[in-house]
Amino acid sequence: MLLESVVEKARRQIGLFTATLLLVSTVIIALIVYTLTLDKTREIATLKLIGAPDRTIVGLILQQALAIGVIGFFSGAGLLVNLVDVFPRRVVLLPADALALGGATLVVCFVASALGVRLALRIDPSRALGG
């Protein structure tokens, strides 16, 4: 009973850390996507001007966010697998947990891209004109 309580406590702590990290990751990815979108204002305006529909623009932003997420996930997973023995505590790595984390990463990327998508959709096509 005591053991179960300790395990449960540790599980909650890890869960809290994970949630915090996911939240921080979301904010960081959102800011990166927003900045990258801001850098591409003229290109996005050009796309709109030559007739690209919103779904094409949204697709570009999502691809960008997903690329960040995929690179981040596999970099993190690679580091974890290679560095796990360096840490003194025993860590159990389950494929199901990795899959769940991958799914969470995807969700984080979609949520984080919202700011960039909002910005992209508001860009006026006339921004492509003029110096």
């Binding site: 001007l49 007739g51 529909p53």
Partner: peptide
């Protein structure tokens, strides 16, 4: 946008 795509070409500075 579709109208622009069908009828107009744009050249920029």
């Amino acid at each position: 946008r579709r109208l622009r795509l069908e009828k107009i070409g744009f050249i920029f500075q």
